[in-house]
Design a protein around this nucleic acid. Structure first.
Length: 201
DNA sequence: TTCTCGATTGTCT
DNA sequence: GACAATCGAGAAA
């Protein structure tokens, strides 16, 4: 087991990176409690040319500035005033690409995840969906702008590989406002995995 | 300063 | 299947 190196996050091709993150393991150490899970669903957000991205058109604000940093940082933000969503910042400095983690298969600290989610038994909705998994992993805005090579939140390579035919590429969720970009198949997931989120609507 | 609305989820009908 | 919850970023003034 080894943390993904700095170089992993520097690729310009955010779509390839979103696929590459599938099967990797996301760890958090929050309040002394270790949790981890396998990434089974991601979405690519392609910087300034992507209408669904917060950095579309080169928008540079206090919130989005972390996306312009060199890859390998976390980008956590609050959505709908309720849910924290966790992104991996990618690409070299100046290119605001990011990958949203949407689905996670629990591995370590499942009891901790259940407590954080106020659940009794493990069901797929424990960590299926970006808001749900962030809560289960203890991710909130305090984990924004963290170095993914640090000891609070990081990603490890397990050597797990998937055949191309087990990876689905479909349009992203919840970005209808992005017009023609809403149709781009930049959502990736492991076919058949129960921890893949269900599109609402 | 004020106003609008969202990369969602859980609950109720 | 419809809808409320809830708050801060971003834009306009």
């Amino acid at each position: 087991m080894a943390k993904l190196p700095f170089s992993f996050y520097q690729h310009e091709d955010v779509n390839a990176l979103a696929v590459g993150l599938l099967g990797k393991q996301l760890f958090t150490l929050v309040d002394g409690e270790l949790t981890a899970g396998t990434i089974v669903e991601t979405e690519a957000y392609k910087g300034v040319i992507d209408k669904a991205s917060h950095a579309y058109g080169g928008r540079f604000t206090p919130r989005t500035k972390v996306m312009y940093s060199s890859g390998g940082l976390s980008y956590v933000y609050l959505c709908y005033g309720i849910h924290h969503l966790f992104n991996v910042v990618t690409a070299p400095q100046g290119t605001p690409h990011a990958v949203l983690i949407r689905g996670l298969e629990p591995l370590i600290g499942i009891d901790v995840m259940l407590r954080r989610r106020n659940m009794e038994v493990v069901r797929p909705n424990l960590t299926a969906g970006p808001g749900a998994l962030a809560k289960a992993m203890g991710i909130d805005k305090l984990l924004n702008e963290k170095d993914l090579l640090g000891d609070e939140i990081w990603i490890e390579d397990t050597g797990l590989k998937f055949n191309e035919e087990t990876i689905a590429a479909v349009p992203r969720v919840g970005v209808d406002y992005a017009e023609e970009h809403a149709l781009l198949p930049w959502r990736y997931y492991i076919k058949g995995n129960p921890y893949v989120s269900k599109p609402n609507r």
